[in-house]
Nucleic acid binder design. Structure first.
Length: 585
RNA sequence: GGGGCCGUAGUUCAGCCUGGUUAGAACGCCGGCCUGUCACGCCGGAGGUCGCGAGUUCGAAUCUCGUCGGUCCCGCCA
């Protein structure tokens, strides 16, 4: 750089700078070489500005001729107005240009493996391998900046509301329940491991025990589970815990916070958010994270078939199953091919099949056997409030499976029929989750949220007799069908915590070994407390309009949890393994 | 753990179903011409282990099996 000092950012030069002598530095985005006149688009994080070199200054022209894409250069020159006919209305710097008096090549670039200036048409694999180049692109620069602004607003608001940002350890203790842990072997303690936190859950509760009253942290969490478009092995939470609060207090804070965050992206969120009990969400949408931007709600049509001659449905009902359906308005004109495709969609999800009833001008038409009879079809149609021209798609079976399949079918139909309003943002609360859930695999109850979630007082008497009916003071916040956060009011009394552990079949020994320190803490005067964790990556993803969480994380992992750029995970030397007392099998 | 789609020039793709000349295109790259371009234009050129391995075949980018990698979904993710 020599004696040069950057005076302006390239993309920040404005008409008001006309007449100034500036020094800009950045990357060569594109050059247009007209022989004795060369245009260089110089790019930095603020955008691009056009630099002009002409034959009037031979030395500068020759220098400009050498420039190649992604070279880093410094340009000293005067900002001048462009002639009207040469204005570029597409960029903020389009009415001006920098007439170069000196061009200094600060570093040369190899030809990049893909064009930085073309946003389209590079495989994700290539982008990830050269992530530092991909991050130069305006789209990623915008996403990263949005993420920063959201974090900044979060810190500002949380500070104003009296929260302290407090760090918690990454090298922690593995606890049962929940996701698979990432483990870190201890060198000092042979055969022992730290676990990376799935969330700072216990630590933030202990901070309440310590009297910090209001805590938050923008913190990395680790879960060793299979990946998805909206799931990474390491992801970031806005983690919050508050003392002396009820559910309402948590809701109100989070609503303000999300409203503030959405404002950053230009959206006005209406608060308070609508609320749906877990039971209502399951019955109307078949899922605890419904996308409420469109209808297609689920209907229970089991009653119509109780006495019917259709043995398949009768048997399912008798065995405690259910028959539920989705009414698709105006789609009685689905062809055989279209209904078959929908049937294929649901059977691939593992259900036995799907039946349909169409309400047409000539009466009902159905895939059910003729013997079912018109009156049964009529009753099913009535239950589903089928109108002329509608189709009813029905799935029968075990309730949780039916709900699961129909909730996915509902989304599939909404996308296929274009029923989702693109720019709408639907935030809502789902509350009154069950405390426990029966696990066939473990043949015992597992915590739906986590083992420190408080049951609702009015359901406490069921904890030993009908644990599955106990509702928890747990809640999720859902945005457009994506779970963006979840939390609960916690147990703050040791006796109740012990009762819940008992319901979870966590024996006294395991209890002491895994959570002893925590149970001890619960004996020393614990304020009633609760909190929530918001999925920062998912929120940024949705606000940035991205389809993948990877596009809002600078250095993400692939679907198989690899970092294509650095090549992790990778083997380690025998020496390292020995130090950690590890031997591979 | 299971299923779908994808892997061909630096990049993005076509070719593959129906095996058979020298594997094409666009962009990029290199060279030349060009003083108002902004996806500059025009002329010329270079550039390929068809992801990898095995099999079938007289012959494989093309068919089969396996494997590696990317992606999406189901399971899983308190």
């Amino acid at each position: 750089m020599g004696s040069l000092h950057r005076s302006h950012r390239c993309g920040a030069i404005r008409p008001s700078d006309v007449g100034k002598r500036v020094t800009v530095m950045g990357w060569v985005d594109r050059t247009r070489d007209l022989g004795n006149l060369i245009f260089v688009d110089l790019r930095d994080r603020e955008g691009t500005v056009q630099v002009v070199a002409s034959a009037e200054d031979r030395a500068v022209l020759d220098k400009a001729k050498e420039l190649r894409s992604e070279d880093v250069v410094a340009v000293v020159g005067n900002v001048i107005d462009r002639d009207d006919e040469t204005v570029n209305v597409q960029i903020p710097t389009g009415t001006v240009e920098v007439r170069a008096e000196e061009i200094r090549l600060l570093s040369v670039s190899k030809t990049p493996p893909f064009p930085i200036s073309e946003e389209q048409g590079t495989s994700e694999e290539t982008r990830l391998r050269y992530r530092y180049l991909d991050l130069r692109r305006p789209r990623m620069q915008t996403n990263v900046r949005l993420r920063h602004e959201i974090c900044l607003e979060t810190r500002k608001l949380m500070d104003r509301r009296g929260f302290l940002e407090i760090e918690t350890p990454f090298l922690t203790k593995s606890t049962p329940e929940g996701a698979r842990d990432y483990l870190v072997p201890s060198r000092v303690h042979r055969g022992q491991f730290y676990a990376l936190p799935q969330s700072p859950q216990l630590f933030k509760q202990l901070l309440m025990v310590s009297g910090f009253d209001r805590y938050f942290q923008i913190v990395r969490c680790f879960r060793d589970e299979d990946l998805r478009a909206d799931r990474q092995p390491e992801f970031t939470q806005i983690d919050i815990e508050m003392s002396f609060v009820r559910i309402e207090d948590v809701f109100r804070l989070v609503e303000s916070l999300l409203q503030r965050i959405f404002k950053v992206a230009g959206y006005d969120l209406t608060i308070p958010f609508p609320r749906l009990s877990y039971a209502e969400a399951m019955s109307r949408y078949g899922t605890d994270r419904p996308d409420t931007r469109f209808g297609l709600e689920l209907r229970d049509v089991g009653n119509a078939f109780e006495e019917s001659g259709f043995q398949v449905f009768r048997r399912i009902l008798k065995e405690g199953g259910c028959i539920r359906g989705i009414r698709v308005p105006g789609k009685a004109d689905y062809t055989r091919r279209e209904t078959d495709e929908l049937i294929r969609f649901v059977t691939e999800l593992g259900t036995g099949g799907m039946a349909w009833i169409k309400s047409t001008a000539g009466g009902f038409r159905s895939s059910l056997p003729k013997s079912v009879g018109a009156s049964v079809l009529q009753r099913a149609a009535d239950l589903a409030e089928l109108e002329a021209g509608d189709i009813l798609l029905m799935v029968a079976g075990d309730e949780s499976q039916v709900n699961n399949v129909l909730s996915l079918l509902r989304l599939h139909l909404a996308r296929q029929e274009n029923l989702i309003p693109e720019h709408r943002q639907d935030c809502l609360w789902v509350y009154d989750f069950p405390l426990l859930e029966w696990s066939e695999e473990d043949s015992r109850f597992l915590a739906c949220h986590h083992p420190f979630t408080s049951p609702k007082e009015e359901d406490l008497h069921l904890l030993e007799t009908a644990p599955e009916r106990v509702r928890a003071k747990a809640y999720d916040v859902v945005l457009n069908g994506t779970e963006i956060g979840g939390g609960s009011i916690r147990i703050h009394r040791q006796e109740l915590q012990a009762r819940v552990f008992e319901a979870l079949r966590i024996g006294p020994e395991e209890m002491q070994g895994k959570f002893g320190f925590f149970l001890d803490a619960l004996r020393f005067g614990v304020p009633p407390h609760g909190g929530i964790a918001l999925g920062l990556d998912r929120i940024v993803m949705i606000l940035a309009g991205e389809q993948s969480i990877r596009d809002v994380i600078c250095f993400p992992k692939t679907a198989r949890a690899m970092d294509l750029m650095s090549g992790s995970p990778s083997g380690v030397s025998l020496q390292q393994q020995r130090e950690l007392h590890l031997r591979l099998t």
